[in-house]
Amino acid sequence: MKINILKEIIEKKNSKAEFAIVTNLKDGNSEIFEKGKKLSKNFENHKDQIESFFKLKKNGVIENTEIFVETYIRPIKVIIVGAVHIAQYLVDFAKSLNFEISIIDPRGYFASEQRFPDIKIINKWPEEAFKEIETNENSALIALTHDPKIDDPALQHALNKKFYYIGALGSKKTHENRCQRLKEAGFSDDQINSIHGPIGIKLGGRSAPEIALSIIAQLVSETYNK
C-alpha cells in the first residue's frame, strides 16, 4: 500500500465518509472507491462486484479474482443528553469503538470543554440542539439527566426519528413516570417499550464507571441485534 493511500484512508475515516479500499492482491496496488467514483483501469473490469460489496458493506475477496474489497461504514451517531459524570466514562469507553459521540446539555457548567475535551458539546436545550445534528434510524440516544425538562424532548425526538437504541437513566419509578408522560404526549406502547429504562445491562455496579460500562455493553449488544 502506498503512503498516500494510507493518508487518504485516514482522512476519509476522519471525515466520516463511506468508502471502500480495493486491493489487487497480485501486485499490492490499491485505491479508494466511493459512490459515483470512477475506478482506475486496474479495477474497472470488476466494477459491478466492487459496487455490490460496497452496497452490502461486505469485506472479502471477489470470487475467482485476486481483488480484495474492504468497506468502511460511517460511525454510529450516539447522542448523550446530560454532560454528567457517567458521560465522562462513556466517552472513555467509546474511544476504541466506532461511535461518534455528541453531548447535549443546556447547563453550561456541566457541558464544558474542560470536562469533555475533543467531544462535540452542544450547550443548548434538546429541541435546538437536534437542529445541529442529523439523526436517523442508525442513531442512538443515551439520556442521563433524569430531568424531564431536558430528557423528555430528547426522547421524543429519538422516538420520532426511530433511533435504533434509546436508553434513559433513572429508577423504575422514574421510568414509570416517564412512560406515563410519553403516553400522554401521544406515543404508542410499542414506542415507549422500545426505550431501555432503567438503562444498561444488569452488572450490579452502582458507580459512574460501572453504570457507563453497563450502558456501553447494552449499546453494543443492540448494535448487533438490528
Binding site: 503512503i3 485516514i10 475515516k13 458493506k57 461504514i73 476504541s96 448494535t223
Partner: peptide, 25 residues
C-alpha cells in the same frame, strides 16, 4: 450492517511511518 468497533490500526501505522519505521500491514 453496523459495527461498533474501530481499532485505529491504520492510524497507528501512520504514526510509525512518521517515526521513520518500516511498516508491513
Amino acid at each position: 450492517m453496523k459495527n461498533s468497533f474501530d481499532e485505529k490500526i491504520l492510524e497507528e501505522a501512520s504514526d510509525w511511518l512518521k517515526a521513520n519505521q518500516k511498516v508491513v500491514l
